[in-house]
Design a protein around this nucleic acid. Structure first.
Length: 506
RNA sequence: GGGCGCGUAGCUCAAUGGCAGAGCAGUGGCCUUUUAAGCCAUUGGUUGAGAGUUCGAAUCUCUCCGCGCUCACCA
């Protein structure tokens, strides 16, 4: 049993009184003829023609203004808000008193009446009858909207506590309309991505989330167990190895949008489960994938926001293709003064970094690839504000990518950067089964210290590759980060309905 | 995991070692066109939890819990 607050006790008392008067506080059925927006729209045409609009509306009570023989209220439904006008002339004094006493902010109500315009010009439902639809036992966090003379709406006492907003997203959504709008736009973005790929002839597929082996990325997995099979299973950390199996099966263009799970740190841009988009495109290379990427992202912005120019923090970002192409070696040289091509071993590269930046050096024990990654993150990444494809990556941090012809240390890989963070990762995919096997073995050597993070050798994937995999370009993008970028949200928690949080004690 | 910060009424916030407060919400009253309605009155607190210092702790110290920022990690 919960400890009820004094406010909740009063509302529970009202519920009992309602039942005692024969009023069910949670009736089974409701009727409505119009949403708030429909009623207002229909009234605005009808009043010019001198026609009456009768309407039955449903919604949650958001504000009340009781004045003795009349009461005003606003209710909110899925389409917006509408004012209600209760007057003794229509419903009688008993019903006015009943409404004022028994209906609280947050209750769901059904109201029937006639549309009218009040003295101040607001389209309003003049109520003839009303009915409780669902009593709210707990008061929603109070929020009041003030409309200034210039039309801007100021919210007072709105729910702002980040923890309560994330834990009790239902309350956050109920009182903050802009949060509902964020998630409507998120859905529109995902729909636009799907329509774009469908339009390009890609087949949407679903591959296993529960996997006997994990792979396709370097991340610690979540582990679980299947009882009947009596075997450990992993939640996938990427879709890559399954989607590429489909290319072996002569499906030439495939994509999947779904959830990945990584058992790692939580931050403003990391959640343990996140939405990923991956596609694989037979007979394409990473340069073609770049072109498709800039089309897809800019098209998604145009479809959902009506523009390719977005604001992110203090930046004005233009997503219009073509995006800047920057070779990684050149970018790192410009940003840090270190030429990675001139230093072909980890020890050499470490000396070069230390010579340029005595106070900013990587861990000297890591691989050359990780040192390059360090240079990228430390010096170059923060400068990549306008959309940029950074291309040609070190081979030893890219075990699934195909080498650049003539350069054994480099692979055909790119990452897309916008607003100083990475939004996607793509490469010309390695399709040589023998090279792939050797890369898996090399990775296992690199990761002997960290059992969990190493890529396990996936024999079935190699078996598939040996049947022949067409040359292809592959692509992965964190959809949550794209949503953050397009909606100017600075934390992944703002774009996830239920972000991961520590378990709450009740 | 490390560092920094925050946690006071249902919500938004005051009180910096000396009686725990305000606005909104709630409750009672007045009010027939209000819109953050207004006016009068009034309820509501284990100051995240626990321990310590002190004549006295929301305030200082320690431990714990939760959250935020940041660093590390995240090919």
């Amino acid at each position: 049993m919960p400890e009820y607050s004094s406010l909740e006790k009063i509302r529970l008392q009202k519920m009992e009184e309602l039942r005692a008067e024969g009023v069910e506080p949670f009736p089974t059925r409701a009727t409505r003829t119009h949403t708030s927006a429909q009623a207002i729209a229909e009234f605005e045409t009808a009043e010019k023609e001198g026609r009456e609009v009768k309407a039955t509306l449903t919604g949650r009570i958001r504000a009340t203004r009781a004045m003795g023989k009349l009461s005003f209220a606003h209710i909110e439904d899925g389409d917006g808000k509408i004012q209600l006008f209760f007057r003794v002339n229509e419903v009688g004094q008993d019903k006015i008193d009943f409404f004022n006493k028994m209906f609280d902010l947050g209750d769901f109500i059904q109201v029937g009446g006639v549309m009218m315009r009040t003295k101040t010009g607001e389209a309003t439902l003049l109520v003839h009858e009303f009915k409780m639809l669902a009593k709210a036992v707990s008061p929603l966090p109070a929020a009041k909207d003030e409309t200034l003379e210039d039309g801007t709406v100021v919210r007072h006492a709105a729910l702002e506590d980040a923890e309560i907003r994330a834990r009790q997203r239902y309350a956050d959504l109920a009182v903050n309309p802009d949060v509902r709008e964020t998630f409507r736009k998120r859905a529109a973005i995902i729909k636009a991505l799907r329509e774009f790929l469908d339009g390009k002839g890609f087949l949407e597929v679903e591959t296993p989330i529960l996997q006997p082996l994990y792979g396709g990325a370097a991340a610690r997995p979540f582990t679980t167990h299947h009882n009947e099979l009596d075997q450990d299973m992993y939640l996938r950390i990427s879709f890559e190895l399954y989607l590429k199996r489909l290319l072996v099966g002569n499906l030439e263009k495939v994509y999947e949008i779904g959830r990945d799970f990584r058992n790692e740190g939580v931050s403003f841009k990391h959640n343990p489960e996140f939405t990923q988009l991956e596609f694989y495109w037979a007979y394409a290379d990473y340069l073609q994938v770049m072109e498709l990427t800039e089309q897809m992202v800019s098209n998604t912005a145009q479809q959902t926001l009506g523009t390719m120019k977005v604001k992110y923090k203090e930046h004005e970002i233009d997503l219009t293709p073509p995006w800047r192409r920057l070779e990684m070696r050149q970018g790192i040289l410009e940003a840090s003064g270190v030429d990675i091509a001139a230093h072909k071993t980890a020890a050499d590269l470490f000396q070069a970094i230390r010579a340029q930046h005595p106070n900013k050096t990587p861990d000297p024990k890591v691989t050359r690839g990780k040192m390059i990654d360090f240079l990228l993150g430390e010096f170059l990444e923060p400068t990549l504000i306008q959309p940029t494809f950074l291309y040609n990556y070190p081979r030893d941090i890219s075990p699934l990518a195909k080498p650049l012809p003539g350069d054994p240390l480099t692979v055909e890989r790119f990452e897309g950067y916008v607003a100083g963070f990475e939004i996607c990762n793509a490469f010309t995919e390695l399709n040589d089964p023998l090279d792939q096997e050797q890369r898996f073995l090399d990775m296992q050597k690199d990761y002997t210290d960290d059992e969990e993070e190493k890529n396990p050798l996936d024999e079935d994937y190699l078996r598939a590759m040996r049947y022949g995999m067409p040359p292809n370009g592959g692509f992965g993008m964190g959809v949550d980060r794209l949503v953050m970028l397009l909606l100017n949200k600075h934390s992944i928690r703002e774009v996830l309905l239920f972000p991961a949080l520590r378990k709450e004690e009740f």
